[in-house]
Amino acid sequence: MSAAKIHLTRETVRAHLHAMMRIRMFEDRCAELYTQEKIRGFLHLYDGEEAIAAGIIPQLTATDRIVATYREHGHALVRGVPMRSVMAEMFGKATGCSGGRGGSMHLFDAARNVYGGNAIVGGGLPLAGGLGLADRVQGSGAVTACFFGEGAVAEGEFHETMNLAQLWRVPVLFVCENNGYAMGTALTRSEAQTDIHTRAAGYGIPSEVVDGMDVVAVEAGTRRALAAIREDPHPYFLECRTYRFRAHSMFDAQLYRDKAEVEAWRQKGPILRFRNWALSAGLLHEADIAAIETEIEAEIADAVAFAESSEWEPVADLLHHVTAEARPAPPPPAEPTGATATARP
C-alpha cells in the first residue's frame, strides 16, 4: 500500500477494513431488499468506491460538515449515522434518519452535520460553498467536505462554485469521486478535459489526484488537505479515481461497458486489495476478518429487523416539514408618529 507516512497499527487497519466491509455488506443487503421490494425508488450503490468515504470521513471532526450525493449510504454510515436509522430511511419508515421523507437519495442527520443526500448533479456544491462561507465568517474552524461525481464537473454549478469558493476562500474540501462514468456516459465521451483536477486548479484551488481504490492513499491526501485548510481557510480539491462495480442504479443494464473491464477493476477493488495486503503484512489474520464479518452481519440483521418493525408515518402528517412548525409572532404595528419624510422604495 502507498503513503507510508501514515502509521498503520493493527487497530487502524481493522478500522479501515471494517468501515469498507460495513458499507459493502450493508449495500449488498440493500440490493436484496430492493429485489424484495422492501426498498423502492432509486438505489445507487457505492460498490467499489468505499475507500473514499472510509479514507476521508474519519478524519473529520464532529463540527465539520458533509454534503454528499444520491450515492451516499457509505458516507452516512462512516459518519456514524446509526445503521438502524439509515436502513429505516431506505424503507421509508418514520424512524429513518430523514423521518422517512427522503429515502436512499436523501440521508440527513443534523446531529452529525450531514446535509444530505442531494440528487441534483452539481446541486450540492453551492450549498457546501455557502456552509463554508458561514464557517469562514463566523470563524468556527469547521470544514465542509463536499462529495460529488465527475459527472458534476460538466455542470455550470461546478464552475460557479469553484470560482466563488476560491474568490471567498471558503474552507471546503471538494472531493470528486471520479468513477469514470456519468451514469452510462464515459468520461472521454463527455468531457473535453478528462483530467478533472486540472479544472479546479484552473481556478487557483490547490488540487491533487489520489488513488481512490486505496484507502490509505485517500487518508493521506485528506490529511494533507485538512491540515492546509485548517491552517489557512481555503478550498482544496481532491480527485479520487475509482470505479463503480455495479450498475448506476438498479435500472441500469450496463450496455455501455464490457464485463471484462468491470472484472479487471474488481481485481483492484479497495476491500480485496487492502485485505490481502493486511493479511500478507501480518496485521490481520483470517480469523480477524471472519470476526468483522460476523459483527457486521449481526448489525445488519438488527438494522433490518428495526426497519421492518418500525411504523409508517401517519398519512395525517402528510403536510409536515414543508415549513417550520414554529414561526415568530408578527411584529406589533408601528405607532404612527404623525411626522413623515419623503421616501422611495
Binding site: R65, Y115, G123, L125, P126, L127, A128, G129, G130, L131, G132, L133, A134, D135, V137, Q138, G156, E157, E160, T161, N163, L164, W168
Partner: peptide, 15 residues
C-alpha cells in the same frame, strides 16, 4: 445559481 446556493448554505450554516 452559484451565489444563490452559497446564500442557502450560509443560511443553513447560521447566517
Amino acid at each position: 445559481s452559484g451565489f444563490t446556493g452559497f446564500g442557502i448554505g450560509a443560511a443553513a450554516g447560521g447566517l
